[in-house]
Computed example of a mutant assay.
Amino acid sequence: MIHLEIKTFSSLSFSPDEPVLASSFDTNSRRLIIALTKAYADDKVLEGVRVEISDWTDAKILIGEQVLRLSDELSDICEFEYQGNKIRLAGFLRNAPGWYDITFLNPQLSVEYASEEKFASRLP
């Protein structure tokens, strides 16, 4: 696996069209692991992606009215923000209706991927 460089974290993004393959959220061990088909960073498309957010000092979890528990797997990541000492992600859960929104304070972020290709611009 290839490790994404820390200096590239702020350009990391996800498409809601690329579903989360699997996820595991353990608040006791302070670890969220997400497997995705693709992610985007700078001018690259990353394939076979594993994201790990861990060792946060605090987490703010907002869930929609219909979401009963966050133990359900994530379905997608519609919004992602990296600001060094804060990571925010939001989207939908796989088996529960509603919206999740999680902000991690002072987390560790690790992004690994199997391959990359240059992002092809659609502009002439």
Rank of each mutant, 00 (worst) to 15 (best):
D17L: 07
Q83T: 03
E79W: 11
W99A: 04
K7H: 13
D17N: 04
L4D: 03
E65S: 13
L21T: 14
G98H: 12
E47L: 00
G84T: 08
D42V: 12
S121E: 04
T37V: 08
G91W: 04
M1T: 12
D58T: 01
P124N: 12
L68R: 15
T103G: 01
S15Y: 01
P124G: 07
S10N: 09
D76V: 01
R50C: 00
K38C: 01
L123H: 11
S13H: 08
K60M: 10
G48D: 01
D42T: 13
R94G: 00
S23D: 15
I2V: 06
V111A: 08
E112S: 14
S23Q: 08
A114T: 15
S121D: 03
A22N: 15
Y100H: 12
I53L: 10
N95H: 12
E47H: 10
P107H: 06
E18C: 02
E52V: 15
Q66V: 09
D42I: 06
A120I: 13
S115M: 11
F9S: 07
Y113D: 06
P16H: 04
E5P: 07
Y82C: 02
V51L: 10
A35L: 14
S13A: 09
Y100M: 08
G64K: 06
L89P: 00
F25G: 01
A39I: 01
I61K: 05
V45A: 00
E52S: 09
F25C: 09
L105T: 15
S11D: 07
G48H: 08
E5N: 13
R88Q: 11
L21D: 10
T27I: 00
L21W: 12
P19N: 06
T57S: 06
S71L: 06
E73K: 15
W56E: 04
L21Q: 14
A39D: 05
Q83F: 02
Q66C: 06
